[in-house]
Amino acid sequence: MITAKGLYKRYRKTVAVDHLSFDVRPGVVTGFLGPNGSGKSTTMRLMLGLDHGEGETLFDGKRFGTIRRPMNEVGALLEAKPFHPTRSARNHLRMLAAGNRIPDSRVDEVMEFVGLGDVKRKKPKGYSLGMAQRLGLAQALLGDPQTLLLDEPTNGLDPHGIHWMRDVLKTLASEGRTIFVSSHLLSEMQLMADELVVIGRGTMIFNGDVDTFVREFTQSQVVVRGPDTGSLAETLKAEGADVATEADALVVSGLEIGKVGHLAFTAGVELHELSTRRASLEEAFMSATGASEQFVAKEPVRAADTAAPEGKAL
């Protein structure tokens, strides 16, 4: 169980984390979601006492800095994957293990577990991004901790690796562990996480289960197509709907499909299409955090104008 209260961090002018409070329960995977620069990594560093700021994080009731041999209770995989260039991966882990009374046999065990058994005596400098990520997970798992804090662990992994990571985290959670894992991809979190903490610009946007988030932020729209829908648009607006024109169709939000059909029927408007369209998860995420996105590209590349099928991204 992780309890974070009033986390706050500012760097000179930017407030990176703004009074965040949340709980992370054991037994489930909790996703920590936010666009680039929203403060996920800073929050995690604050939780571990690496950065100094305000607020307090308790891991099973204890502050990280007060835990004796903390790797046995809290495992962390941070954003940067730093290694000394001339020290082998195995020695890197042996060094961290030595500070927590973890035997060398456990080092070999976790390296086998993450699939790096054959390259454990090599230097991580020569590892690929995916291998470095696996070594990071091995580091987090060294002390067989009850709580895991992982900052974008799937970064750089191929689809197979992502699948593997997902299974590992789910299994660990089902053993009753507390798993807090950050990502900027909602589609990934939907497959991996049960609970979500969503932030934008350092402030809380949503805290609850994934399905609720999707329902709350995925607006469904009604697409209306016909030879002459101009007058219908006025009628729909009068009913309080938002109406946008898209090529030869009206895209109606804020009204149910039945209501739209009824209004068209009473107005005697000929329709060629009347259908619903659900916004994709990524769009839901964008609509939730979009207003708080910090680094919006000046001219976004419009890959797909219309809604993409759900769960496309991976």
Partner: peptide, 12 residues
């Protein structure tokens, strides 16, 4: 080499 972060998660 940035190892101060893992070091401090081992010895806070």
């Amino acid at each position: 080499h940035g190892t101060i972060q893992p070091t401090l998660t081992s010895l806070p």
